[in-house]
Design a binder for these strands. Structure first.
Length: 269
DNA sequence: GAAGACCTGCTA
DNA sequence: TAGCAGGTCTTC
């Protein structure tokens, strides 16, 4: 569930909570595959005793910059999230890993579907420029190298890092471009519209503290268990059959690259 | 590309 | 009970 804005919200909240500067004293791994390919024992050994110097992010990866050789790289995948507790450790039902930090702060990595991953490394591999930082030139260059469908391209993290299913649909709607439109057919104006749409949608998501939809179990909540405020601003995702906010025609739903895709067949060409 | 794998829990 | 989910990997 979490895309760039949700990860960024969590990063900011972790920083505000004073996680950086603390020593990781004890590491608990409750679901071994969370730390794959390392064994829990090796992972614990490598992480325990390190200081969290800074928290950064690239795309959907949260980066705990450590004082050792490695950084702790975390991907929340579909249902991952963090919460904090203080004092005596009480494990929650979906906790997959817990870092006990200096000062009695416990950082719980919660992940009902167990897809989330914690890795050790300098930096996550295979990512293109971050969606909050990509410039128009860079965006255009990559766009011009391919003739793939636009939705598939936006979801490709090696093209642009951080866009997921919700924000891809929202960006394509804002740009008035059909999700299966081929990159090679875009006019200069359309390329620019897409660039602005992607950056605007992502930035709006960050400003509003991320997107939560419905109240399902896997739904995104921030560090404090609160829903993101962007859900009510979503114009197409999850609104199939409802009227387009621009033209009033019902929104269409299809599958593109095996992902649910909602768009306005009238407005998006 | 497409399809399956990885997983659980909610909704219809 | 079947179907679906905000993500990525691997294997055709």
């Amino acid at each position: 569930m979490p895309e760039l804005p949700e990860v960024e919200t969590i990063r900011r909240q972790l920083r505000e909570a004073g996680v950086n500067g603390r020593v990781i004293e004890t590491v608990h791994v409750e679901w071994p595959r969370t730390v794959d390919p390392l064994s829990p024992a090796v992972f614990r050994k490598q992480v325990a005793g390190c200081t969290i110097e800074r928290l950064s992010r690239h795309g959907k990866w949260l980066i705990f910059e450590l004082d050792g050789e490695n950084n702790l790289l975390v991907h929340l995948r579909m249902t991952g999230g963090f919460y904090l507790s203080q004092g005596t450790l009480k494990k929650g039902p979906h906790d997959r890993a817990i870092l006990q930090l200096s000062g009695g702060l416990n950082l719980h990595f919660r992940d009902p579907r167990k897809f989330g991953r914690m890795r050790l490394g300098a930096f996550p591999n295979g990512l293109g420029p971050d969606a909050m930082e990509i410039g128009p030139r860079q965006f255009f260059q990559t766009l011009e190298k391919t003739n793939r469908g636009l939705k598939a391209l936006l979801l490709d993290q090696s093209f642009i890092a951080g866009v997921g299913n919700i924000y891809a649909d929202e960006a394509l709607f804002e740009a008035r471009l059909h999700p299966e439109r081929r990159a090679g057919t875009l006019s200069e104006d359309e390329k620019l519209a897409l660039y602005h749409a992607v950056t605007q949608v992502i930035q709006a998501g960050v400003r509003n503290g991320g997107t939560s939809l419905g109240d399902g179990q896997g739904n995104y909540t921030d560090l404090n268990g609160n829903s993101g405020g962007h859900g009510e601003r979503v114009k197409v995702y999850g609104r199939a059959g409802q009227p387009c906010v621009v033209c009033g025609n019902p929104l269409s739903q299809t599958k593109v690259t095996q992902r649910t895709t909602v768009f306005c067949a009238h407005c998006q060409k």
